[in-house]
Write a protein that binds this DNA or RNA. Structure first.
Length: 206
DNA sequence: CAGACGATTGCCT
DNA sequence: GGCAATCGTCTGT
């Protein structure tokens, strides 16, 4: 039978080197089904966190209840709470028992912007501009309704939360640089160019 | 069990 | 540009 719907990215997609996955996630669509609506956005910024020797990676401090998901099979979500208020969405990569993940830092909203607006709105404040809806890891989780309930969620089944291959992004459109907010890490990890984004895209967190 | 802190955000000066 | 918000997780007593 024919099927016009794009398939969710598979386990094989995530079971590769984390830098490769982070780079190739650019241009892919993040899709969320919630309250009978479909929200989606194109990934425009992502960061790689790679294994036990990467001191910026949570799992470098060992296997704990929180980091357990990163030691598990690829293609699952690693979601955690930061500063008591914001959720971060990561996708587990590489082989089982090698703890690594890609942090989705920003998406360009495509569908369901009104729902995102409603989720992000603050009482007594003017409506947010589209560029403010999902231009940060905490923002996009709030806009997409992603919280700790999704920790460990398989993003390869096409239910509730998944990714789809999008338009191929040429290397000339990709910029790389150091990761954001990891001042506690070792100098060589702070300077590693493991952040990827679409050059000039206004939805990048900056 | 107390205490420190964080892969952020948004309000305030 | 400074800084408070707010809580799960981890460390050390």
């Amino acid at each position: 039978m024919t099927n016009d719907q794009p398939a969710p990215l598979s386990t094989d997609f995530f079971a590769r080197p984390t830098l490769t996955v982070a780079r190739e996630l650019l241009g892919c669509r993040l899709v969320r089904q919630i309250d009978g609506a479909t929200l989606s956005g194109v990934v425009v910024e992502a960061e790689a966190y790679i294994g036990p020797t990467d001191t910026a990676c949570h799992a470098s401090k060992g296997r704990t209840p929180r980091t357990e998901v990163m030691f598990g099979p690829p293609g699952r979500a690693y979601v955690y709470l930061i500063y008591g208020m914001y959720h971060m969405l990561n996708l587990v990569t590489e082989a089982e028992d090698f703890p690594a993940a890609v942090l989705i830092r920003a998406v360009e909203p495509q569908t369901g912007l009104d729902r995102m607006q409603a989720r992000r709105a603050k009482p007594g404040r003017p409506p947010l501009k589209p560029a403010a809806l999902t231009s940060g890891p905490g923002k996009l989780c709030q806009a997409f309704g992603i919280d700790l309930a999704f920790n460990g969620w398989p993003v390869t089944t096409g239910e509730q939360l998944w990714l789809e291959r999008g338009q191929t992004v040429p290397d000339s459109h990709v910029a790389t640089g150091p990761r954001v907010g990891i001042t506690y890490a070792a100098p060589e990890d702070i300077s590693a160019p493991w952040r990827f984004w679409l050059r000039g895209n206004p939805f990048v967190s900056g």
